[in-house]
C-alpha cells in the first residue's frame, strides 16, 4: 500500500479529534483563567483557582471520599468479580446459562432506580451508615463491568493449563494465583480502570446515597455549580482528571510489574 491519505479523510479525522478534545481543552483553559467567572479563552494565566479548591473544605473532603469509595468499591468488586468470572467460565458447561446473565442485569437497571432501591433497602431500611451504603452501591454499580471484562479475558484462557499445573503438584488454590491470575492480568487491569472511572464519575447512584456530612466530588461539583459560576469548577475537574490518570498509571505499573516478576 503506497496510496496517499485523502485530504477528506484527514479533514474528517481532525474534526473527530477536535470534537473529542475540544471540551478538555476548554476546561483546562478555563481552569487557568485569572478571572472570577468561567471563560474561554482564558484571560490571564493563574493557578489561583487550583489553590481555591483546597480553601473550600467541601471539595477537600468530597475528593477524599470519592477516591476512598472508588478504590474500595473497585477492590470489593474485583474480589467478588474475579472468582465469579472464573467460575462462570471454568464451569460454563455445568452452570445454567442464566447465571452469567445475572451478573449483567445491574447494567440494565437505570442507575437512578438502583440508587433509589439501595436508599430504601439498606440506608433507610437496614440503617447502614452513609459511607457503607455508598460503598455497597458503588460495588454493585461496577461489579458487572468487572465480571464482563474479566470473563472476556478468561474466555480465551485454556483451562487445561490449570490442570497441567495441578498435575505437576500445585494445589488448586495456589494454581489460581500462580497460573490463572497472571494470564488474565490485562483483563484485571482493564476491569480495575473501568470500574474506578465508573465509580468516580457516578452521579445518579451517589445522588441518593450521599447523606449528612458525606458526599462525593461529582455531587459536590453539582451543588457548587448551582450556587456559583467561578473557574473553581473547571480547576477541580482538571484535578480530578489528573488524579484519575495518576491512579491508572500506578495500577498499570504495580499490577503489571508484580505479575511479571512472579
Amino acid at each position: 500500500m503506497t496510496g496517499r491519505l485523502s485530504p477528506v479523510l484527514i479533514g474528517f479525522a481532525v474534526l473527530v479529534y477536535a470534537f473529542l478534545m475540544g471540551p478538555l481543552i476548554i476546561v483546562i483553559g478555563a481552569a487557568l483563567s485569572d478571572t472570577t467567572f468561567l471563560t474561554f479563552p482564558p484571560q490571564g494565566l493563574s493557578l489561583r483557582w487550583f489553590e481555591r479548591i483546597f480553601e473550600i473544605g467541601a471539595f477537600r473532603r468530597t475528593m477524599v471520599t470519592s477516591f476512598q469509595v472508588a478504590t474500595l468499591a473497585t477492590i470489593c468488586a474485583l474480589i467478588v468479580g474475579i472468582p465469579a468470572a472464573y467460575a462462570l467460565n471454568r464451569y460454563r458447561v455445568q452452570l445454567p446459562g442464566w447465571l452469567s446473565t445475572l451478573f449483567v442485569l445491574p447494567v440494565l437497571v437505570p442507575e437512578i432506580v438502583l440508587g433509589f432501591s439501595l436508599l430504601r433497602s439498606i440506608q433507610v431500611g437496614a440503617g447502614f451508615p452513609v459511607f457503607s451504603t455508598l460503598l455497597i452501591g458503588h460495588t454493585l454499580l461496577v461489579l458487572p463491568y468487572c465480571v464482563r471484562v474479566i470473563s472476556a479475558s478468561l474466555a480465551s484462557f485454556d483451562f487445561s493449563i490449570e490442570e497441567a499445573a495441578i498435575s505437576l503438584g500445585s494445589p488448586k488454590w495456589k494454581t489460581f494465583f500462580t497460573i490463572v491470575l497472571p494470564n488474565v492480568r490485562s483483563g484485571v487491569i482493564a476491569a480495575f480502570i473501568l470500574a474506578f472511572i465508573t465509580s468516580i464519575n457516578d452521579v445518579s447512584v451517589a445522588l441518593f446515597l450521599t447523606g449528612p456530612g458525606i458526599s462525593t466530588l461529582p455531587i459536590q461539583i453539582l451543588a457548587h455549580v448551582e450556587q456559583f459560576f467561578d473557574p473553581v469548577i473547571a480547576s477541580v475537574s482538571v484535578l480530578l482528571m489528573v488524579l484519575t490518570v495518576a491512579v491508572m498509571a500506578v495500577v498499570e505499573r504495580t499490577l503489571g510489574l508484580t505479575f511479571l516478576t512472579k
Partner: peptide, 11 residues
C-alpha cells in the same frame, strides 16, 4: 501429563 494442546504456561 502431556496434553493435546501442550498446555504450557504462556507467561
Amino acid at each position: 501429563l502431556v496434553f493435546q494442546n501442550y498446555a504450557l504456561f504462556p507467561h
